[in-house]
Protein backbone atom coordinates (compact mmCIF):
# COMPACT_ATOMS: atom_id res chain seq x y z
CA UNK A 1 0.00 0.00 0.00
CA UNK A 2 1.78 3.18 -1.12
CA UNK A 3 -0.29 5.44 1.16
CA UNK A 4 0.92 3.58 4.19
CA UNK A 5 4.56 3.94 3.24
CA UNK A 6 4.17 7.67 2.83
CA UNK A 7 2.47 7.84 6.15
CA UNK A 8 5.10 5.95 8.04
CA UNK A 9 7.73 8.11 6.43
CA UNK A 10 5.94 11.19 7.62
CA UNK A 11 5.79 9.87 11.11
CA UNK A 12 9.41 8.93 11.23
CA UNK A 13 10.33 12.29 9.79
CA UNK A 14 12.45 11.02 6.91
CA UNK A 15 11.26 13.84 4.72
CA UNK A 16 12.59 16.55 6.95
CA UNK A 17 9.18 18.07 7.50
CA UNK A 18 8.56 18.98 3.86
CA UNK A 19 5.76 16.58 3.25
CA UNK A 20 2.33 17.77 4.31
CA UNK A 21 -0.08 15.25 5.66
CA UNK A 22 -2.58 14.57 2.92
CA UNK A 23 -6.06 15.59 3.95
CA UNK A 24 -8.48 12.83 3.18
CA UNK A 25 -12.23 12.86 3.68
CA UNK A 26 -13.53 10.55 6.35
CA UNK A 27 -15.08 7.45 4.95
CA UNK A 28 -18.53 7.38 6.44
CA UNK A 29 -20.13 4.04 7.09
CA UNK A 30 -22.76 3.34 4.45
CA UNK A 31 -25.47 2.70 7.04
CA UNK A 32 -26.14 6.32 7.97
CA UNK A 33 -26.15 9.02 5.37
CA UNK A 34 -27.37 11.89 7.57
CA UNK A 35 -24.90 14.78 7.74
CA UNK A 36 -23.10 13.58 10.83
CA UNK A 37 -19.68 14.97 11.35
CA UNK A 38 -16.88 12.96 12.76
CA UNK A 39 -14.23 14.54 14.93
CA UNK A 40 -11.91 11.59 14.63
CA UNK A 41 -11.60 9.07 11.83
CA UNK A 42 -9.37 6.30 13.02
CA UNK A 43 -8.12 3.81 10.49
CA UNK A 44 -5.91 0.78 10.94
CA UNK A 45 -4.63 1.95 14.33
CA UNK A 46 -2.18 -0.43 15.97
CA UNK A 47 -0.54 0.26 19.33
CA UNK A 48 2.16 -1.92 20.75
CA UNK A 49 4.35 -1.83 23.82
CA UNK A 50 7.43 -3.79 22.88
CA UNK A 51 6.16 -7.31 22.17
CA UNK A 52 2.66 -6.71 23.51
CA UNK A 53 0.08 -5.55 20.98
CA UNK A 54 -2.44 -3.49 22.92
CA UNK A 55 -4.58 -2.53 19.95
CA UNK A 56 -4.61 -4.27 16.61
CA UNK A 57 -5.74 -2.49 13.41
CA UNK A 58 -8.67 -0.59 14.81
CA UNK A 59 -10.85 1.49 12.50
CA UNK A 60 -13.47 3.64 14.15
CA UNK A 61 -15.15 6.98 13.54
CA UNK A 62 -16.05 9.16 16.49
CA UNK A 63 -18.94 11.55 16.08
CA UNK A 64 -18.74 15.18 16.98
CA UNK A 65 -20.72 16.45 19.99
CA UNK A 66 -21.66 13.05 21.25
CA UNK A 67 -20.56 10.66 23.97
CA UNK A 68 -18.80 7.59 22.71
CA UNK A 69 -18.65 4.96 25.42
CA UNK A 70 -15.71 2.60 25.03
CA UNK A 71 -16.40 -0.68 26.82
CA UNK A 72 -14.77 -4.06 27.19
CA UNK A 73 -12.73 -6.08 29.68
CA UNK A 74 -9.46 -4.94 31.25
CA UNK A 75 -6.39 -4.97 29.08
CA UNK A 76 -8.20 -4.77 25.77
CA UNK A 77 -6.61 -1.49 24.76
CA UNK A 78 -9.32 1.00 25.69
CA UNK A 79 -6.97 3.37 27.50
CA UNK A 80 -4.36 3.01 24.77
CA UNK A 81 -6.97 4.25 22.31
CA UNK A 82 -7.58 7.34 24.44
CA UNK A 83 -3.87 8.05 24.75
CA UNK A 84 -3.54 7.98 20.97
CA UNK A 85 -6.25 10.60 20.56
CA UNK A 86 -4.18 13.25 22.34
CA UNK A 87 -0.80 11.69 21.58
CA UNK A 88 -0.02 11.03 25.24
CA UNK A 89 1.43 7.81 23.85
CA UNK A 90 4.49 9.91 22.95
CA UNK A 91 5.57 9.77 26.59
CA UNK A 92 5.16 6.05 27.16
CA UNK A 93 8.57 4.44 26.74
CA UNK A 94 8.56 1.68 24.14
CA UNK A 95 5.11 2.57 22.86
CA UNK A 96 4.77 2.32 19.11
CA UNK A 97 1.73 3.64 17.23
CA UNK A 98 0.91 3.04 13.58
CA UNK A 99 -2.11 3.74 11.44
CA UNK A 100 -3.92 7.00 10.92
CA UNK A 101 -6.11 9.24 13.02
CA UNK A 102 -7.65 12.14 11.16
CA UNK A 103 -8.87 15.05 13.25
CA UNK A 104 -10.24 18.04 11.36
CA UNK A 105 -8.83 16.26 8.28
CA UNK A 106 -5.29 16.27 9.63
CA UNK A 107 -3.38 13.18 10.65
CA UNK A 108 -2.61 13.77 14.31
CA UNK A 109 -0.14 10.91 14.32
CA UNK A 110 1.92 12.78 11.71
CA UNK A 111 5.00 14.76 12.56
CA UNK A 112 3.58 18.12 11.52
CA UNK A 113 1.11 18.28 14.36
CA UNK A 114 1.83 20.64 17.24
CA UNK A 115 1.26 18.11 20.00
CA UNK A 116 0.93 20.65 22.80
CA UNK A 117 -1.81 22.41 20.88
CA UNK A 118 -3.48 19.08 20.24
CA UNK A 119 -3.54 18.39 23.98
CA UNK A 120 -5.09 21.77 24.60
CA UNK A 121 -7.82 20.88 22.09
CA UNK A 122 -8.32 17.42 23.54
CA UNK A 123 -8.55 17.32 27.31
CA UNK A 124 -7.86 14.10 29.20
CA UNK A 125 -9.47 13.18 32.49
CA UNK A 126 -7.65 10.43 34.37
CA UNK A 127 -9.06 7.62 36.42
CA UNK A 128 -7.64 9.07 39.60
CA UNK A 129 -8.34 12.79 40.04
CA UNK A 130 -5.02 14.58 39.66
CA UNK A 131 -5.29 18.26 40.56
CA UNK A 132 -1.92 19.90 41.16
CA UNK A 133 -1.07 20.15 44.87
CA UNK A 134 -1.80 23.86 44.75
CA UNK A 135 -4.75 26.07 45.51
CA UNK A 136 -7.90 25.71 43.43
CA UNK A 137 -7.17 29.06 41.79
CA UNK A 138 -3.60 28.10 40.88
CA UNK A 139 -4.90 24.91 39.26
CA UNK A 140 -6.53 27.18 36.69
CA UNK A 141 -3.88 29.86 36.57
CA UNK A 142 -1.01 27.55 35.75
CA UNK A 143 -2.45 25.91 32.59
CA UNK A 144 -4.04 29.15 31.36
CA UNK A 145 -0.77 31.04 31.74
CA UNK A 146 0.97 28.20 29.96
CA UNK A 147 -1.30 28.86 27.01
CA UNK A 148 -0.66 32.58 26.98
CA UNK A 149 -3.59 33.90 29.01
CA UNK A 150 -2.04 36.25 31.57
CA UNK A 151 -4.74 38.77 32.27
CA UNK A 152 -5.90 38.18 35.84
CA UNK A 153 -9.46 39.22 35.20
CA UNK A 154 -9.72 36.96 32.20
CA UNK A 155 -8.34 34.06 34.23
CA UNK A 156 -10.86 34.76 37.00
CA UNK A 157 -13.65 34.90 34.46
CA UNK A 158 -12.69 31.63 32.77
CA UNK A 159 -12.24 29.93 36.12
CA UNK A 160 -15.64 31.04 37.35
CA UNK A 161 -17.48 30.11 34.17
CA UNK A 162 -15.95 26.62 33.94
CA UNK A 163 -16.51 26.01 37.65
CA UNK A 164 -20.12 27.04 37.12
CA UNK A 165 -20.41 24.73 34.14
CA UNK A 166 -19.17 21.85 36.26
CA UNK A 167 -21.48 22.73 39.14
CA UNK A 168 -18.55 23.32 41.46
CA UNK A 169 -18.66 27.09 41.80
CA UNK A 170 -21.11 27.20 44.71
CA UNK A 171 -19.11 24.57 46.55
CA UNK A 172 -15.70 26.18 46.18
CA UNK A 173 -16.19 29.91 45.60
CA UNK A 174 -15.25 30.75 49.20
CA UNK A 175 -12.19 28.54 49.24
CA UNK A 176 -10.46 29.26 45.94
CA UNK A 177 -7.17 29.85 47.74
CA UNK A 178 -7.39 26.59 49.67
CA UNK A 179 -5.46 23.52 48.50
CA UNK A 180 -7.31 21.55 45.85
CA UNK A 181 -6.37 18.36 47.68
CA UNK A 182 -8.71 19.30 50.52
CA UNK A 183 -11.70 18.75 48.21
CA UNK A 184 -13.50 15.40 48.16
CA UNK A 185 -12.61 12.89 45.44
CA UNK A 186 -15.69 13.75 43.41
CA UNK A 187 -15.04 17.46 43.71
CA UNK A 188 -11.43 16.94 42.67
CA UNK A 189 -12.55 15.05 39.59
CA UNK A 190 -14.99 17.80 38.66
CA UNK A 191 -12.21 20.32 39.26
CA UNK A 192 -10.03 18.40 36.82
CA UNK A 193 -12.86 18.46 34.27
CA UNK A 194 -13.29 22.20 34.82
CA UNK A 195 -9.53 22.68 34.45
CA UNK A 196 -9.56 20.80 31.15
CA UNK A 197 -12.59 22.84 29.98
CA UNK A 198 -10.87 26.11 30.87
CA UNK A 199 -8.58 25.60 27.89
CA UNK A 200 -11.66 25.57 25.62
CA UNK A 201 -11.11 22.13 24.13
CA UNK A 202 -13.11 20.52 21.34
CA UNK A 203 -13.12 17.18 23.03
CA UNK A 204 -12.73 15.45 26.36
CA UNK A 205 -11.27 12.01 26.84
CA UNK A 206 -12.25 10.30 30.07
CA UNK A 207 -10.46 7.24 31.30
CA UNK A 208 -12.84 5.57 33.76
CA UNK A 209 -13.45 8.91 35.46
CA UNK A 210 -15.79 7.47 38.09
CA UNK A 211 -14.04 4.29 39.09
CA UNK A 212 -12.26 5.93 42.02
CA UNK A 213 -15.39 7.72 43.23
CA UNK A 214 -18.28 6.91 45.56
CA UNK A 215 -21.77 6.44 44.01
CA UNK A 216 -22.99 9.97 44.77
CA UNK A 217 -19.89 11.66 43.31
CA UNK A 218 -20.07 9.28 40.39
CA UNK A 219 -23.65 10.37 39.77
CA UNK A 220 -22.57 14.02 39.80
CA UNK A 221 -19.81 13.37 37.28
CA UNK A 222 -22.26 11.47 35.07
CA UNK A 223 -24.73 14.35 35.17
CA UNK A 224 -21.91 16.66 34.25
CA UNK A 225 -20.97 14.49 31.27
CA UNK A 226 -24.61 14.54 30.10
CA UNK A 227 -24.71 18.32 30.38
CA UNK A 228 -21.53 18.64 28.34
CA UNK A 229 -22.38 16.31 25.50
CA UNK A 230 -24.14 18.94 23.42
CA UNK A 231 -21.01 21.07 23.20
CA UNK A 232 -18.10 18.66 23.38
CA UNK A 233 -17.09 15.43 21.79
CA UNK A 234 -16.60 13.04 24.68
CA UNK A 235 -14.96 9.65 24.62
CA UNK A 236 -15.41 7.81 27.88
CA UNK A 237 -13.79 4.52 28.81
CA UNK A 238 -15.86 2.63 31.33
CA UNK A 239 -16.07 -0.79 32.92
CA UNK A 240 -19.58 -0.09 33.98
CA UNK A 241 -22.13 -1.23 31.39
CA UNK A 242 -25.02 0.64 32.96
CA UNK A 243 -22.94 3.80 32.93
CA UNK A 244 -22.27 3.24 29.24
CA UNK A 245 -26.03 2.88 28.71
CA UNK A 246 -26.80 6.04 30.66
CA UNK A 247 -24.17 8.21 29.01
CA UNK A 248 -23.33 6.80 25.62
CA UNK A 249 -24.85 8.04 22.40
CA UNK A 250 -22.44 5.71 20.65
CA UNK A 251 -20.73 2.60 21.88
CA UNK A 252 -17.57 0.75 20.91
CA UNK A 253 -16.87 -2.67 22.35
CA UNK A 254 -13.28 -3.87 22.50
CA UNK A 255 -12.14 -7.38 23.22
CA UNK A 256 -8.92 -9.24 23.74
CA UNK A 257 -8.50 -11.69 20.85
CA UNK A 258 -5.35 -13.81 20.64
CA UNK A 259 -3.73 -11.47 23.15
CA UNK A 260 -4.45 -8.41 21.02
CA UNK A 261 -6.99 -5.69 21.71
CA UNK A 262 -9.49 -5.51 18.88
CA UNK A 263 -12.66 -3.59 18.12
CA UNK A 264 -15.61 -5.98 18.14
CA UNK A 265 -18.52 -3.72 17.36
CA UNK A 266 -19.34 -0.05 17.26
CA UNK A 267 -22.35 2.05 16.43
CA UNK A 268 -25.12 4.14 17.94
CA UNK A 269 -25.91 3.08 21.51
CA UNK A 270 -29.47 2.08 20.65
CA UNK A 271 -28.28 -0.27 17.94
CA UNK A 272 -25.42 -1.84 19.91
CA UNK A 273 -27.45 -2.31 23.06
CA UNK A 274 -30.77 -3.33 21.50
CA UNK A 275 -29.68 -5.19 18.41
CA UNK A 276 -26.04 -6.18 18.67
CA UNK A 277 -24.67 -7.69 15.48
CA UNK A 278 -21.76 -9.58 16.95
CA UNK A 279 -22.29 -12.70 19.06
CA UNK A 280 -19.56 -11.61 21.45
CA UNK A 281 -21.41 -8.33 22.05
CA UNK A 282 -24.63 -10.24 22.75
CA UNK A 283 -22.90 -12.45 25.31
CA UNK A 284 -21.06 -9.53 26.91
CA UNK A 285 -24.18 -7.40 27.23
CA UNK A 286 -26.09 -10.31 28.71
CA UNK A 287 -23.33 -10.68 31.28
CA UNK A 288 -22.49 -14.18 30.13
CA UNK A 289 -18.85 -13.27 29.64
CA UNK A 290 -16.68 -10.58 31.12
Amino acid sequence: MPGKDLESEIRHGHHGGNVMTVAQPCIEPAAHREPERHLWCISDLTVSYGEVIALSSVSLNIKENSVTAVIGPSGCGKSSLLCCLNRLTDFIPGCCVSGRILMHSKDILGGQIDDTRLRKQVGLIFQKPNPFPLSIRRNFELPLREHGIRDRQEIEHIMQSTLEATGLWKEVKDRLNKPAHQLSGGQQQRLCIARALSLRPDALLMDEPCSALDPISSGQVEELVLSLRERYTIVIVTHNLSQARRLGTDVALFWLRDGKGTLVESGPASQVFEAPRDDLTKLYLRGAIA
Binding site: L88, T116, L124, F126, K128, H147, R195
Partner: peptide, 12 residues
Protein backbone atom coordinates in the same frame (compact mmCIF):
# COMPACT_ATOMS: atom_id res chain seq x y z
CA UNK B 1 0.47 11.41 37.50
CA UNK B 2 1.41 15.00 38.18
CA UNK B 3 3.70 15.11 35.15
CA UNK B 4 1.06 13.41 33.00
CA UNK B 5 -1.55 15.88 34.22
CA UNK B 6 0.64 18.73 33.05
CA UNK B 7 1.44 17.14 29.71
CA UNK B 8 -2.24 16.33 29.14
CA UNK B 9 -3.02 20.00 29.72
CA UNK B 10 -0.66 20.92 26.91
CA UNK B 11 2.37 21.97 28.96
CA UNK B 12 5.56 21.79 26.94
Amino acid sequence: ERIQAARALGFT
